[in-house]
Each structure stands twice: as structure tokens, then as C-alpha cells.
Design a protein around this nucleic acid. Structure first.
Length: 820
RNA sequence: GCGGACGUGGCGGAAUUGGCAGACGCACUGGAUUUAGGUUCCAGCGGGGAAACCCGUGGGGGUUCAACUCCCCCCGUCCGCACCA
């Protein structure tokens, strides 16, 4: 048969149409006796178009999904849409198009592109978070949290843009100004917000990281540990002079408390209002606003004396109370005791304002610093001095004793503080899940009864981008009788943070149409935990902490048995174009459609897997993609012109030639390499390189191969390419007269005996430098190797006139002759 | 400032356990095919040198028969955290 040109469009459209008509092609079976494998890529925001950055993520997951199917697993590989969010509202303002319409159109478009890329998703399980059938379960979970005290309302300081008249998320504050009004400084404003008490799970979120150490990148776990920020210390109450109230401070170094020379409050600390005079108050206000729009790193320390004093409960000493901008309200108690002799920040501050410095810790092998000549804080542990009954103790011992003493006397105790804060989930937005709460003038906050869910997001809403909470203006939505007393009441007008949508979506894939529960617990028990989760490292903190939290909450509700959502996490690198991350503003985005039109889906997939290992950033180049295209064309042409000859193979044909043996060896070496890459580190770049080598060898040996070997080579080649280039693999499978789909064929087993070289190549070095090489049978005795090496002409030349001091022999590998 | 990762040809990258540095691809050069261009096929391709050979994995030192790989110091790039008491 003459070879056929590689026409990627004709091949891909042929199979695209066939596969389109098989909605169950990649169906996952929740009642299978096969071992399960759940591979998941993070669900995308439906921005409107798939680009080559998305494609990388999905190509990695899809290669794995296809491979695992071929290895006999029952694979769940689903896809969905993170469909709520601000861009839909912005688009609505810009195009006068309803967010729902815009979102749905984008989903249709992106889903078409996904299918065209031949990603093997079970589309029967598709979810979209903006549909009431999904978000009603957000509301249901919210009610469950409310019942358990995990959802609550309180005042909070938030970023507020006076120009937009709305709250901004932290990510929407750029250099202290609004992202849409670059000259408008963001203000800090107090508002009543809904919070989720994720801090109740802080200890578990930290300790369960142990369960993830084998399967999650160390980098992500470190980021999570830092984010949670557990810190053990002591809470101590300082009495307020001339007042019944107390100031509670948190310290990790209670052993230094005899060195405390002032107490400092955060500007937002509730006591500041009471303690400070009017003049101080204005200054404090300015401090708060100044901090709102400055990089914390280059903020100068600034403080004010309140004029009041507090009493150190350990020694009864009277110390001044200050307010300073470097104390943050969100951590600990929002108040500290300053020990300038033993804390760098306190040292800097007290030096600046002339507050006394009193050393109370000396190095184990040194003297106590002099309070006058002291040049820097001594922050290490040491021996406690000048500290009453605790003098002479080591820091660690003193901490224990002081905690006990404080407990006995009732002015303090050991305490654990977290950097992790409760999760503020209220958003003054339209396009999100309505918070299922009702505000009644008689009963206060009343949850929507479970049977009234979902609280459906109304569609007829004016979105102007001005003013907060668009829902507040929709009377038909807002006005509702109180479920408790029937009085006319108002609904909550805020919607939920979209991170809630993505905190549990992967469970919904188990049972996406369930109208009576978020999902069937049996199905979840079968599929969970996720065997492999794949996504960008930018989600290392928020999404992945929220997801871990939600899983623990669902476990406590009895819905799931697993502590953690995913056993393994893989974070792939970014796709870079022209030296920069792809973005609309840089105009360097390549859409999936452009890429498919020019190169085809297979080429795009192969190039993105070949050009770099998946965890590293990848440079997209058209020239590189052309190389991948050439490779697929080379395979295709070789197969089409040799298929007939291969298929004519007779059982027990002619005895194998030297070329036959070499090709079979290379084939099994290649198969071993590809299999190992799938099973270990996913360096598909080296898998594909090895397949390319094999194809190069096939070209070189083409005329000398027997039909039987040719057939084995071609079939195995197609099977190995299936996870990477499913279209052309399917087409070639058909050309070989086989029935597909290829991903249902078993993955071929490599034969270690066939992969083994016939003879070992022995490298001969002189003083570590390569000088000669020779062939020797495997297992040749070391003495023989040494003799052969020494007898080699080149070696004789190299060592001539010098004395052989030592010979190192590594069996089957190397002889190193050391001469002087 | 603290913590982490990384640094290999013109480019992307390979070398998995200390054992041939540069697999594979791109770019480039030459040849074959072609009226020509393109495609395809074959070959060359770290630097120096006519060659023997020498040099070479950010820089400097060390361990070792042997170092891209291990150890120490320095430089650079990227990422994370950054008054967290």
C-alpha cells in the first residue's frame, strides 16, 4: 500500500464525528468490580474560550486517564464549570447581556473545544455551578454549618472602593487602589459579613497534612502549613490602670515578660476608642487608612502613647500603653507586650520612641546585655534573669512554670493561635449563590427552611456595577414572610464567595443529578478519595485549603468517610508565550481553535507533553509544534505504507534477522520507558522522546524487517501513542484492520528479556577520562574485563610509560585505570 | 529580611542509584528528491584545534578511582512568606 499523507483535519474530523455520537464512550461505572481510578483536573472558569494553557492541564490528565483505562481501571474522569463569578457581571455591563446567557454560551463553546481536543470526559456527569440544581447544595451546606455554629455573622473590616461603592476582594486591590479605578485608594470599612468558622478545623487541617506527605508536592504543603500558621504561646491579662477592664496579650515568649516595657495595641483594637483622646483618635484613623494601601514590607513603624498604663501581672509593674501600626488586629489578641531586649521589632520601635529596654535573658554561655549599650535584640532562648522566682531557669522551663503560675493566679494560660482566619464568604454581587438567610424584624436572622431550597437567584436584575448587592433592589426576591413568625421580612442580599462552589464540586461528579442530596454516599465511598488531582499551583492555598476543610466538614456530617479529598496532587507549570504568561492584555493568547486549525488536536497534545516535563513552565513555539506535527506524520506515513506487509505476516515465518532482533529490543526498551514514566514521575517528554527514537530506528531498518516483527512494532507503537495522540492512534488502529476504540485495548506488557542488550558495552577510562570502549558478554568476570581493557591498543598508548596504581572495575559497565 | 526551588549547547530539554555530558526536538548547515519553493528522506551540528588532543554542566573550593549529580562558600533567576508577637 502506498503511504498516505498525514491529513490531520480529515483524520480528526472523521473520529470527532464518530465519537460525538457515542455519549457513553467514556462513561464511568459506579457499580463496577474493576479497581477504580479517579483522575480530576481543576474545573475551569468558563471565560469563553479554551487556550493552550488550559490544554496542557487537560492533556496531562487525559493521558493518565487513557493509560489507566488500558491498565484495566474503572476510570472516573469528569469535567464541569466554575460558572459563577464577577467576569459574567462585567460582561453583562459591557455587552448588555445577561450573565446566565453569557455563561451558558461560553460553556457551550468551551465544551465543544474540549470535545474537539478528544479529552476523554464522561460528559454524563458534567456540572455547572451556576445552576440551581447545584447551588442549592451550597445553600444546604450553609444551613448545616449554621446549625453547627460554623456559619456566623459579625462586623468585619473590608476593602471598600468609594468609586464602585462596593466591597473588593483582596485580589482586586492593586497597590492599595481599586483595580478598576487605579487612582482611587481603597478604604477599610466595617461591614456585617457572613463567616465560616474554618478555624475550628485549623488543628486538623494542619495535622492531616501528614496524610498528604507522599502524594502532594512539598511546596504546596509548606505553603499550607505557613498559611495555617499554628503558634504555641501564652495569653496574659494586663490590668488596665484605673479601670476594671483588662488587656489580653498573646506571646510566644512569656519567659521574657519581666522585660516588658510597654503594651501595644493594634490601631483597630476595640479598647483604642475608649482609651485614646480625640486627637489620638484621628491619628489612629489615619494609621489604619495608610496601612490599607501600602505594602506592609515598606511601612515605617509608627506609634502613639495613649496616656494610659497597664499593670504587668507578674511583677506588678506599671507600663505605658501605646498604639502602633505594626500590630495587626487579625492575629492573636491584637495586643502585645513589647520586650525590646528580646524581639527585633519591639527593639526597633522602643528605640525610636525612647521606651526603656530591659534585658532579662542571657545566652547560655554569656552575660546579660547592658540596657544602655545594647545594640540589638537577643531573640534566642537562654537563661532567664531578673525575673523574680523564675530567675536562673532555662527559657523552655520558665515558659512552662510561668504558664502554670499564670493559670493558678487566674491572669493567663497557655494558648494556641493560628494565622488562619475565619473565611469571609459574603459578596455584594449578583452572580453567585444566594445566602439562604432571612432578616426578620421580630426574630432576627432566620435560616431558610431546608424544604424551601433552593433560594433561586432571580434573573430579572439590573446590574450596573454601581452600588452594592444588586439583589437588594429586587423586591420580588427580597420580600418574604419570616419562616418563624410570618412577619414581613427581607432576604439576605449578599451572595456566596465562589470558592464555596469549588470546595466540594468533585463529590457532585459521583452523582450529578441527585435532587434529594448533594450526592449518594455509596457512590462517594466508592470513588473517593480522588486518586490524582491536577491543577495550577496558584490554587495551593485558597481552593485547596477550602476543599480540605469542606471534606472534613462533610465527614463530620456523615456524608463521606475520607479525611482528605485527594490522595495525590500534581501541579503543572504554566504555558509561556514570547517570554510571558499568556494574557489578553499582552495579546499573546493562542486559542484552542487556532491551534487545532493549524496543527490539530493530537499535535497540540503531543507538543505540550513533549516540550518540557509537566511540572515545569513550558514555552510554546510554533516551530516546536511543527516538530511534533512532523513526528506524527512520520509515524502515520510509516504505518500506512507498511500495514499491508505487516498484516501478511504468517505464523512461524522466516527466522528473525539481526534487524528484527534489534528492533524488538528497542521496542521493548521503549515500552519499558513509557510504562515507567506513567507509573512514576510522568516525564512524558522523555517517553515521547523514546518513542521518537524508536520511530527513527524503524525508518532505518524498514527494508530489513520481517512482517511479524513489523506488525508487533506497529501495533505496540499505536498503543503507546494512544494516551498522547488519540485521533491518529485510532485511525492507525483501523488501518491495521483492528477494531477500536484503542483506549479499551490492554496496555502491552514489556518483556525484560527482549529489552535486554545482548552484550554489555564496557567503557574504559584512564584517570577518569574516556579512552576506549569494547563489547563483552554480561557477567564477564572482573579480572577478564581488566585484562581486556589493559590489552586495548588505545589504552596501551594512553598509559605508556606510567605506572598503573589501581584499576576500578564496575561489572558490565566500566573499567577505570588509575596511573601515575 | 526569612524559607524553598532552580542554574547544562544558539533554544526547549535529557542524563532516574556518583560511572560515556548534551538523548529527543527546534534552529542552523550540507546533500538527495523536485522545473522551483515547500514537503519528504539522508547526514552534520558544545567550544578550541590540521590532528593528536585540550577545555566544558553559573563562579570558587572540597570529598572520590570517578561529580551535572554529594559537601562548603559565593553569584544569579524564579516562587512563597513577610511586622504573625
Amino acid at each position: 500500500m502506498p503511504e498516505k499523507p498525514y491529513d490531520h483535519k480529515q483524520i480528526e474530523l472523521k473520529w470527532f464525528e464518530r465519537w460525538q455520537n457515542q455519549p457513553d464512550l467514556y462513561k464511568a461505572d459506579s457499580n463496577s468490580s474493576l479497581p477504580k481510578y479517579y483522575v480530576l483536573e481543576m474545573l475551569p472558569y468558563p471565560s469563553g474560550t479554551l487556550h493552550i494553557g488550559h490544554i496542557r492541564n487537560y492533556s496531562i490528565g487525559d493521558a493518565l486517564a487513557r493509560y489507566k483505562r488500558m491498565r484495566g481501571f474503572n476510570v472516573l474522569h469528569p469535567m464541569g464549570w466554575d460558572a459563577f463569578g464577577l467576569p459574567a457581571e462585567n460582561a453583562a455591563i459591557a455587552n448588555r447581556r445577561h450573565p446566565r446567557e453569557w455563561t451558558r454560551a461560553n460553556i457551550d463553546e468551551m465544551k465543544r473545544q474540549h470535545r474537539r481536543m478528544a479529552f476523554s470526559y464522561d460528559w454524563n456527569r458534567e456540572i455547572s455551578t451556576c445552576e440551581p440544581g447545584y447551588y442549592r447544595w451550597n445553600q444546604w451546606f450553609f444551613l448545616k454549618m449554621y446549625e453547627r455554629g460554623l456559619a456566623y455573622r459579625r462586623q468585619a473590616l473590608l476593602n471598600w472602593c468609594p468609586n464602585c461603592a462596593t466591597v473588593l476582594a483582596n485580589e482586586q486591590v492593586v497597590d492599595g487602589c481599586c483595580w478598576r479605578h487605579e487612582t482611587t485608594p481603597v478604604e477599610q470599612r466595617e461591614m456585617v459579613q457572613w463567616f465560616i468558622r474554618i478555624t475550628r478545623y485549623a488543628d486538623q487541617l494542619l495535622s492531616d497534612i501528614k496524610q498528604l506527605e507522599d502524594g502532594w508536592p512539598e511546596r504546596v504543603l509548606t505553603m499550607q502549613r505557613n498559611w495555617i500558621g499554628r503558634s504555641e504561646g501564652t495569653e496574659v491579662d494586663f490590668a488596665l490602670e484605673g479601670d476594671q477592664r483588662k488587656i489580653r496579650v498573646f506571646t510566644t515568649r512569656v519567659d521574657t515578660i519581666y522585660g516588658a516595657t510597654c503594651v501595644i495595641l493594634a490601631p483597630e483594637h476595640p479598647l483604642v476608642t475608649d482609651l485614646a483622646t480625640a486627637g489620638v483618635h484621628a491619628e489612629v484613623r489615619r494609621m489604619i487608612d495608610a496601612r490599607g494601601h501600602k505594602d506592609p514590607g515598606d511601612l515605617e513603624k509608627e506609634g502613639l502613647f495613649t496616656g494610659r498604663y497597664a499593670i504587668n501581672p507578674f511583677n506588678g509593674e506599671r507600663v505605658p500603653i501605646w498604639v502602633a501600626n505594626f500590630i495587626v488586629m487579625g492575629y492573636g489578641t491584637g495586643a502585645i507586650m513589647a520586650v525590646p531586649a528580646h524581639d527585633e521589632r519591639d527593639f526597633e520601635f522602643c528605640k525610636q520612641y525612647g521606651i526603656p529596654i530591659r534585658p532579662v535573658i542571657r545566652p547560655v554561655d554569656g552575660d546579660l546585655a547592658d540596657p544602655v549599650t545594647i545594640r540589638e535584640a537577643f531573640a534566642d532562648y537562654g537563661i532567664v534573669e531578673n525575673s523574680g522566682q523564675f530567675s536562673g531557669l532555662a527559657s523552655a522551663e520558665a515558659r512552662l512554670r510561668m504558664n502554670e503560675a499564670a493559670g493558678r493566679a487566674g491572669f493567663g494560660s497557655a494558648a494556641v493561635t493560628f494565622r488562619l482566619k475565619d473565611w469571609g464568604v459574603s459578596r455584594q454581587r449578583y452572580w453567585g449563590t444566594p445566602i439562604p438567610m432571612i432578616h426578620c424584624p421580630c426574630c432576627g436572622v432566620v435560616p431558610v427552611p431546608e424544604e424551601d431550597l433552593p433560594v433561586v437567584l432571580p434573573l430579572d436584575v439590573a446590574i450596573t456595577g454601581q452600588g452594592s448587592s444588586p439583589l437588594a433592589a429586587v423586591d420580588a426576591f427580597m420580600n418574604v414572610p419570616c419562616p418563624k413568625c410570618g412577619t414581613a421580612a427581607r432576604r439576605e442580599s449578599d451572595t456566596m464567595d465562589t470558592f464555596i462552589d469549588s470546595s466540594w464540586y468533585f463529590y457532585r461528579y459521583c452523582d450529578p443529578d441527585n435532587a434529594g442530596a448533594p450526592f449518594d454516599t455509596q457512590s462517594a465511598a466508592y470513588w473517593f478519595p480522588i486518586d490524582q488531582y491536577i491543577g495550577g499551583v496558584e490554587h495551593a492555598i485558597l481552593h485547596l485549603i477550602y476543599s480540605r476543610f469542606w471534606t472534613k466538614f462533610m465527614r463530620d456530617l456523615g456524608l463521606v468517610a475520607n479525611d482528605e479529598p485527594a490522595t495525590r496532587l500534581f501541579t503543572q507549570g504554566m504555558v509561556i508565550k514570547d517570554g510571558a504568561k499568556m494574557s489578553k492584555s499582552k495579546g499573546n493568547v493562542i486559542s484552542a481553535d487556532q491551534m487545532i486549525e493549524r496543527f490539530g488536536a493530537d499535535t497540540g497534545r503531543v507538543f505540550e507533553l513533549f516540550a518540557a516535563p509537566p511540572e515545569k513552565d513550558l514555552d510554546w513555539t510554533d516551530a516546536g509544534a511543527e516538530g511534533a506535527y512532523r513526528f506524527l506524520g512520520r509515524v502515520y506515513r510509516f504505518l500506512t505504507r507498511n500495514a499491508d506487509r505487516a498484516l501478511a505476516a504468517q505464523p512461524g515465518g522466516a527466522s528473525p534477522s539481526e534487524s528484527d532482533r534489534r528492533i524488538r529490543r528497542k521496542l521493548h526498551q521503549t515500552l519499558r520507558k513509557v510504562t515507567e514514566d506513567f507509573e512514576t514521575r510522568w516525564h512524558f517528554n522523555t517517553s515521547i522522546a523514546k518513542i521518537m527514537e524508536f520511530v527513527n530506528d524503524l525508518y532505518a531498518a524498514e527494508a530489513d524487517l520481517s512482517p511479524a516483527v513489523l506488525l508487533e512494532a506497529l501495533e505496540t507503537l499505536v498503543l503507546m501513542l494512544e494516551p498522547f495522540a488519540p485521533y491518529v492512534a485510532e485511525e492507525m488502529w483501523e488501518q491495521l484492520g483492528r477494531t477500536g476504540p484503542v483506549f479499551r485495548q490492554p496496555w502491552p506488557a514489556f518483556d525484560a528479556g527482549l529489552a535486554r542488550e545482548e552484550e554489555a558495552e564496557i567503557v574504559v577510562q584512564v584517570n577518569g577520562k574516556l579512552r576506549a570502549r569494547f563489547q563483552a558478554p554480561f557477567g564477564t568476570p572482573q579480572a577478564t574485563l581488566e585484562t581486556t581493557a589493559l590489552g586495548n591498543d588505545k589504552i596501551q598508548q594512553a598509559i605508556e610509560g606510567r605506572r598503573v596504581a589501581k584499576v576500578v572495575v564496575v561489572p558490565d559497565k566500566l573499567v577505570n585505570i588509575v596511573v601515575r
